[in-house]
Design a protein around this nucleic acid. Sequence first.
DNA 1: ATCCTAAAACGAAATCATTTCTATTTAGAG
DNA 2: CTCTAAATAGAAATGATTTCGTTTTAGGAT
Lengths: 144, 144
Amino acid sequence: MDQRHASALKAAGMKATPKRLAILEMLEAEPGYASPEELWKRLKDRFDRLGLPTVYRNLEELSASGVLSKVIHPNRQLYYYFCSNREHHHHFVCLSCRKVEDIPACGIEALEQEVSKRNGGKVLSHILQLNGLCGGCADNGEKQ
Amino acid sequence: MDQRHASALKAAGMKATPKRLAILEMLEAEPGYASPEELWKRLKDRFDRLGLPTVYRNLEELSASGVLSKVIHPNRQLYYYFCSNREHHHHFVCLSCRKVEDIPACGIEALEQEVSKRNGGKVLSHILQLNGLCGGCADNGEKQ
DNA sequence: ATCCTAAAACGAAATCATTTCTATTTAGAG
DNA sequence: CTCTAAATAGAAATGATTTCGTTTTAGGAT
Ligand SMILES: [Mn+2]
Ligand SMILES: [Mn+2]
Ligand SMILES: [Zn+2]
Ligand SMILES: [Zn+2]
């Protein structure tokens, strides 16, 4: 149905199944981020059969391929967000209403004040973390 | 015993119990971040009794009070790190050896290259997220 | 249009890191 | 030294997420 999403899936090397398309449609319509179970509960009505593991699996795959973005939440549960901005950027997420706002730049100190002043919101905390391999480990191809 | 840690605990309004001090000592000696269970297994030898929930509870409390820092890990398990740098800063963590390096500035794009070149490491991914309340939600004191 | 096969989905069950709960112990103020 | 709120034990519960063997399906090939 939705050619945009079908194309995105094809570009990601994934089959355009009805359930994947429904997940993308629902998440795109969502104003903020959503949990796998929330999406599952609402998607169940549109299919005679839909397993929660299927939702988990697809969200993770779509996130891994960059079609969806994952939210790092203090409660450490999984949340996903559909962001049409294909440029590299980061997010401001509201812990109350789950709204997600794009953050164009990456200067954190300046960013906090800017977000706080421009949107009138309050930044309670921020997470900045670089994951990777140090020099010694990058050499030999160790993992984990 | 360790006056520095006892003082840090006092400053945080926490009692300087032997187990808390042992947790801090062990984590300070650790070259990288560690999980609650790893610390527990090694601390058990030093006490006739030590519950895993106690380690979890103390790590979380110490993290909340800023004595320890929490690591955001792709496997979504809990890891903690003792950082003596009391200035506001961020971390580069190695997914292979768990080493943690301070990152003084917050310009992410520049940072990735800088970390990659200066330390010879490889940045596989980064997380930048601001958590807080948007304008609408900051007004009324809603939570979650 | 039909076949074929790797990919996707099912769904019950398992996993297991983390939390909860109640009784017991203890740090540290007075 | 006493007293009490804070801290801990330890068993049990929790529940989000994953696993697994089976069944179904998307989509390229014929
Ligand atoms: Mn975005
Ligand atoms: Mn540090
Ligand atoms: Zn390393
Ligand atoms: Zn909000």
